[in-house]
Write a protein that binds this DNA or RNA. Sequence first.
DNA 1: ATCATAATTAGAATAATTCCAAATTTTGGC
DNA 2: GCCAAAATTTGGAATTATTCTAATTATGAT
Lengths: 144, 144
Amino acid sequence: MISLDHVHDPKPEDFPSELEGLRMTKQRREVLAVILGERDHPTANDVFVRAKDRMPTISLATVYNCLEALVSHQIVRQVNFERESSRYCPNLSDHCHFQDEESGKIHDVVFKDGVKLEDFLELPQGTEISHLEISLKGQFGTQK
Amino acid sequence: MISLDHVHDPKPEDFPSELEGLRMTKQRREVLAVILGERDHPTANDVFVRAKDRMPTISLATVYNCLEALVSHQIVRQVNFERESSRYCPNLSDHCHFQDEESGKIHDVVFKDGVKLEDFLELPQGTEISHLEISLKGQFGTQK
DNA sequence: ATCATAATTAGAATAATTCCAAATTTTGGC
DNA sequence: GCCAAAATTTGGAATTATTCTAATTATGAT
């Protein structure tokens, strides 16, 4: 797994021609650059609007295609809050999401050091987790 | 908060004319009875199909209306897995959901005794959680 | 019973996402 | 570089879950 989380304000040209076995086409590069650029958990449509700045010919269908390719190759993460439209996040480390109800902003929330899921959930032996999503809403604190 | 989780195979007539400040109409009773009856986390459409057995004139719009009324009055819970259609759960106790990828079945998963969210998440001081959803997918174990 | 309010209904509308088939681009072999 | 095959992109149509709308019906209070 390659984490690009540290890459800020990247140009599409910064990416190699292949990432995680996925061919990085112009469009995929652009979509990835958008997601790494402004880390506000944009929706597919947000990505589309932003990508058009640099690449006016890109289509929404392509944005969806690129997002699905990036997600399935674990280059970005798909984030859901209830039935709202999906959002996209370049942070691949173990974390979950908090949506502040006042501002609408989404914050990454990390686990306390060393805690594992099995420590707090009553799961039967032999359970294999392939996907986990934790979504919180409320007022996000200011201090600490 | 009134938990009806222990009520199995209820008839619609079993419910009082008001619950949690919500007027229990014929349709709301029926929808609630369906959800308490077969606890397989049905979708709105599943509820609609089942409710029609006893009440052939009920409409899908009404099922959606009833579900939203029951959810907002905290009589049932709405459950989401990524962008799949919402499901409904009569268990109001603190728990989360595991979807077995082989069978498609959804299991309730409880927290280990005494664990609190704040124990495993790094949340800033002053954070107020109004809504929490934890969804897991994978192979659900058989033992224990 | 009358009235005002709330709930139900069928069908239309919406929004996010996926599908489709054609056009374009990329790739690897020569 | 040239060509065929494969992959990707594109615009638009289709799909799906859900919400909205406007008309009808039921309810509860007086």
